[in-house]
Design a protein around this nucleic acid. Sequence first.
DNA 1: CTAATTAATTAACATACATCAATTTACATT
DNA 2: AATGTAAATTGATGTATGTTAATTAATTAG
Lengths: 194, 194
Amino acid sequence: MINEFKKYLIEKIKITDEQFESISSGLKVKKFDKNQIIQYKGDQFKHGYFVGKGLLRSYSIDAKGKEHILQFAPENWLISDRNNMNNEPSEFFIDAIEQTEAILVPNHFMDDATAKVPSLQAMHNKLLNNSIRFMQKRINLLLSATAEERYLDFIKLYPNLTLRVPQWMIASYLGITPESLSRVRKELANKHFR
Amino acid sequence: MINEFKKYLIEKIKITDEQFESISSGLKVKKFDKNQIIQYKGDQFKHGYFVGKGLLRSYSIDAKGKEHILQFAPENWLISDRNNMNNEPSEFFIDAIEQTEAILVPNHFMDDATAKVPSLQAMHNKLLNNSIRFMQKRINLLLSATAEERYLDFIKLYPNLTLRVPQWMIASYLGITPESLSRVRKELANKHFR
DNA sequence: CTAATTAATTAACATACATCAATTTACATT
DNA sequence: AATGTAAATTGATGTATGTTAATTAATTAG
């Protein structure tokens, strides 16, 4: 499992084996049951999670008790609370959609890594940059696209998650109700049948 | 104007005067007319803009020709195209809402700065992190809040822009039509009158 | 200062999506 | 396999926001 994390860092920030060994001691793995809530809004932890096996999600709960999914984190995703990273309480919940094993990654792991090995900085910046790009695209879709268009984008972007995640969660990620998503799917099925 | 950029970097990444001097030579200032389009979708530039005076915006145009505003950039904002930073063509347009003077900031300015002065890296990461936090909040609002709630959030977050920017642009940022925003405002006025 | 644009408001009507409620289907637990 | 629970579907209806179009107000340009 630690090895998966190494692969992740090799791919994302081009870390070397030796560099990884020098910073990875002390990483702990933790298991979570399905439906276990890992982090509540308001919590302040000093680590994020690298998912080795399973599936996590982060989400908010609005005044009416409705959940809104910010992010899915399947295998080989690093999910960090951006508020915790800034030493502020979390705005979001995190829970396990499936039974999950994850590495607890200290919030300053990346800072430490790039401090220790400055050559990693450029790639790490690129990683953050991609994260911003991704979110810009999502904002743009929320501003401009219909429910159907957003769903089509989702299944293209996350073909695996589409099968793995309950529909009501996909709806929640898209910003529509499960009923609406069901209708969107029916519409799409009809279109492709004709 | 260069001095404003120095102040920005002192505040945001805690650069020192000497450090700034060592990397700021060669920065160019450019003026833009009101309504001038600075960057088209598909363009690939090697610089972003630090706004010293005036106001820029980035936006997309959808299939129906409707604009959707991703970001406003008033004085002391650094607006960089995240696709260009990754050597890919831009997904968005940038234009000047007001007559603007901006510093052309090379895409790799920050990378260079942190490479030259590794101690800046932590703060730079924090800056990017804040950018992500901000976008997470916006996504969450788009998923969960009504037009009225989003507008109230906007005027609280950007009291100056609320006065400076035409309403139809605020509507475009919020993801609603100008007509709807007008009605939202009327509603709010009524509520506070009663 | 006036004319010409552009923005904002308002009203009537349309529509995408939400809500509520009832079934049906799938999934878990024993 | 049987039973209970949660998810998905479907239908009827509601509502927030969109669309179109007309009017008024505000800006901009000559």
